[in-house]
Design a protein around this nucleic acid. Sequence first.
DNA 1: ATTGGTGCAAATCCTTTGCAATAGC
DNA 2: GCTATTGCAAAGGATTTGCACCAAT
Lengths: 147, 147
Amino acid sequence: MPVPTPSTDDLAALLRARGQRVTSQRLLILRELRRRAHHMTAHEVWEAMRRALPGTSTPTVYATLELLVELGLVRKLCFDAGTALYDARTEPHQHVVCRHCGRIEDLDIDLDSDSILVAARATGFDPDGVELVIAGSCAPCAEATRA
Amino acid sequence: MPVPTPSTDDLAALLRARGQRVTSQRLLILRELRRRAHHMTAHEVWEAMRRALPGTSTPTVYATLELLVELGLVRKLCFDAGTALYDARTEPHQHVVCRHCGRIEDLDIDLDSDSILVAARATGFDPDGVELVIAGSCAPCAEATRA
DNA sequence: ATTGGTGCAAATCCTTTGCAATAGC
DNA sequence: GCTATTGCAAAGGATTTGCACCAAT
């Protein structure tokens, strides 16, 4: 079952606009993030690239992920300190994380982000992103705990 | 200017109730977290203990912080992957984090946690905590960037 | 031809593990 | 005295750095 190859024209355009180079590594990393569902670790991205671009180094993966975040094409998520996750789904959404097994699900709550941003500005900050994480037990883990 | 020593009677009671030992390290770690404002790293906790209990090891600090989280006396926060922060303020509240310098401020938005929890349960999870983080630029960093 | 990106190796940082010694019960 | 906790040393894992080489412009 072939997965369609997502376009990365937007990345190429952004890079050119900033005078940065359009490299195959950069395009491929974003393509892999877009191809899979969300939430890949840097290591998973690196593994996913092996077939198409073997020999890619981890420093390149990390640097590129950081760049994609800066460009607003990818969100960096830090749930359990230790390993960051990268998410190519840029529309506002939230996450539920299982405390026991680490499973993650997306959520689409319609947050009142206006009042949130207003409150943030009251602290003197210039807010540019809202991250909501709900911790709990996924169904299987809740079951296992009850037993 | 002497800071009052916060009580840790609640911790002692919880430990006894669970048949766990009330050690000076455990009491002191919670006391330090309560004495300072919030958001200490494990390393900062370790440093803060040096005077009162020199020779405390980092494994003890980490194990104890994990225990305090489990007991619900401390919140573990993971903003920038790499280093966790521990927060002894347990009432529900949110955080603003500066993307540039890492400065953190508390926020007290009255979130509609009911609708959030309902949405979370729709995924099959049993939610037990809501964490909201707003990223942005603190005033000094916003100023520096503009210049 | 330039110089920004990359790969390699090694370093750094945070956190955890294994095990003998210690202190709370 | 029994055994959970501790301290020590060392390992583990994620991420970053320094530098020589390569490839996009």
